[in-house]
Design a protein around this nucleic acid. Sequence first.
DNA 1: CGTATATTTCCATTATTATGGAAATATGAA
DNA 2: TTCATATTTCCATAATAATGGAAATATACG
Lengths: 117, 117
Amino acid sequence: MKHSQAVESLAALAQETRLAIFRRLVRAGPEGESAGSIAAALDIPSPTLSFHLKALEAAGLVDQRRESRNVIYGARYGRMRSLLAYLMKDCCAGHPEICNIDMESCRESPARTSACG
Amino acid sequence: MKHSQAVESLAALAQETRLAIFRRLVRAGPEGESAGSIAAALDIPSPTLSFHLKALEAAGLVDQRRESRNVIYGARYGRMRSLLAYLMKDCCAGHPEICNIDMESCRESPARTSACG
DNA sequence: CGTATATTTCCATTATTATGGAAATATGAA
DNA sequence: TTCATATTTCCATAATAATGGAAATATACG
């Protein structure tokens, strides 16, 4: 990942509403969620939502597809992984224990009944 | 991690110069690096560097200690881990393979001669 | 076609942030 | 105390971003 791309992605996430939107899409998984559903869930006026979704898309963090009258947005997980890896790159100067991220919530979410896979 | 803290941290990182500074400190490990050394390496005027270090510190991403005339800055790895975990929280709706981050560069950096730990 | 629903674009207002020169402060050395 | 080095604060300028109402566009359905 290029430095400028990382800055662009971070800037897209560095905003209360956009971060909430993105995390919602991260939770949603590959199926994604429609703009209207996001707007209703987060109580955001549609012009504001559209503005923020566009920013997330321009940053490469989400993609969109149309399904009938709805536009479905989804997280681009590859881009998210690249961004996180970029932040940790060559980290810790020989102390790998420093960078162990807790990924339990991914493998076994409280919203789901059992472990996935 | 609270939402507002995550936004604050992301905003601190969402700037070309600050991201470069932070990644440099992430690489540096627990020893950290002095302001002057960072300024020289990245060719940043000292008022500008000071401004950005202050922003990173306010966001909780770096800490400082004085050593004689130098002020040594270091990455706060705990905060970084929390931030990354927050982004991935409850991710992927049952597809845990989506969120496997490549951490090889942490365990075996090209800048080092052999694996650490 | 006419109507309803979903989403986006336009735009004016308001607010926040980055930059770096000059000056101030802090520490250590002679 | 006087000087040199390291870092920060002050401040004016310039640039960028967020908000949401009104209007425009896109899709579907009868």
